[in-house]
Design a protein around this nucleic acid. Structure first.
Lengths: 208, 208
DNA sequence: ACTATTTTTAATCATTTGATTAAATTAAAT
DNA sequence: ATTTAATTTAATCAAATGATTAAAAATAGT
């Protein structure tokens, strides 16, 4: 069959479309992205988008699913490991997330803004209900609190603090660059610093 | 002239359109909002949107401008007051912002996601370049650091921490509700608590 | 009451946009 | 080499969308 071998070529075309779609969807969102822009960006004929992915919606779902998977895979693998301490997990999560987000800065805004347009559908596919709150990570935090290592705090506050300190800089990057000083390079430098600082800060919060 | 007195009625129609536009633009963003949806939501004829506001773009700019003004007016009035201390400003900013955002939860996401689509244009109209970094607020922080009250920290880190702790919960609300536990009511309760907690936490960070 | 002005409406336009089709091209199989 | 299947292309479609227009209705001024 022709299909089998040409799959290598198919993949190359498919991948070109996916890359362009990823770029545009993540930058401008679903509604503001035109299929023609995806075609142009990937240098393919418009019809190939539908040939390979059936529709703009299906292509979007694919891109979003991959983004979500990537984003939550890290989380899921780390937070339920019973062999590492709470503090180890904290270090690892901050380090891993900042590293990944520095490579793909648009991911958080992409996910959050599409959740805003379509909360139910997207949150369903994420399949992460109570993921954090029922995790070993949070249980370990609660043990530490019971042991008097940290002061009491509601897990939701902890979650907001952790995510706020770690991912907010990426969500608000243009505004932060505008209100503050510094440039692209400074931004990256500060985020490298935050890998070390955020765990320290979080522990300070937990002692307050 | 008819115009003068009927302005009262005009305003009512104009205001109906603006309210609907505000609701939809803030919920779905510019690109995903249809003028027909605005017309339907406000119960007016589609043509009136163009009659009063010329175009979807112009209407959007108006709504966005008002959102930005509201958002930054607070900031501007607080951060350059030389009669209050750093700590007073911190308390006031957190308190004021959380109160306002609890009334209009979509504002941060609205602003941030539109900045993402159109950074230059929007950041220009905000007219807040270096607003934070050159403020009395940040200068007072630096004085306190010099005086040994707080440990050294780069102003951009402070800015990220402050905004991350305060506004991120609103940006990520659906995800936080999903990953954590609790409902709408719990969310509001936690944000009320954060009015008190965030200033304490920030000071803890500054001592670390 | 009459006129002028403003506001509202229904119908329509032009463009954009996602998608499809039929033909052409390329690659694979025999 | 010929046939078959897969891929690509140019042209086109139908629906959606922002905007306009001309007429009708409402309001204000005299």
């Amino acid at each position: 069959m022709a299909k089998k071998d040409s799959k290598i070529l198919d993949k190359s075309t498919e991948e070109k479309i996916k890359s362009a779609a990823r770029l545009l969807f993540q930058q401008k969102g679903f509604a503001a992205t035109r299929t023609r822009d995806i075609a142009q960006e990937s240098g393919i004929n418009l019809a190939l988008l539908n040939y390979y992915f059936r529709s703009k919606e299906k292509l979007f779902e694919l891109i979003m699913m991959e983004a979500l998977t990537g984003f939550f895979a890290v989380l899921k693998s780390v937070i339920n490991d019973s062999n590492s301490s709470f503090e180890d997990k904290l270090d690892l999560l901050v380090e891993t997330y900042i590293t990944r987000l520095l490579v793909n800065e648009d991911i958080p805004m992409f996910i959050l803004s599409e959740i805003r347009s379509n909360p139910k559908a997207l949150l369903k596919v994420i399949n992460a209900e109570r993921l954090m709150i029922d995790s070993v990570f949070i249980h370990q935090l609660q043990k530490q609190i019971e042991a008097g290592v940290y002061k009491p705090i509601h897990p939701n506050h902890f979650l907001m603090n952790f995510m706020g300190l770690t991912v907010f800089p990426f969500v608000a990057k243009p505004m932060i660059l505008h209100l503050g000083d510094g440039n692209e390079t400074e931004f990256r430098k500060h985020l490298e610093e935050r890998k070390r600082l955020i765990p320290i800060w979080i522990k300070a919060l937990l002692n307050t």
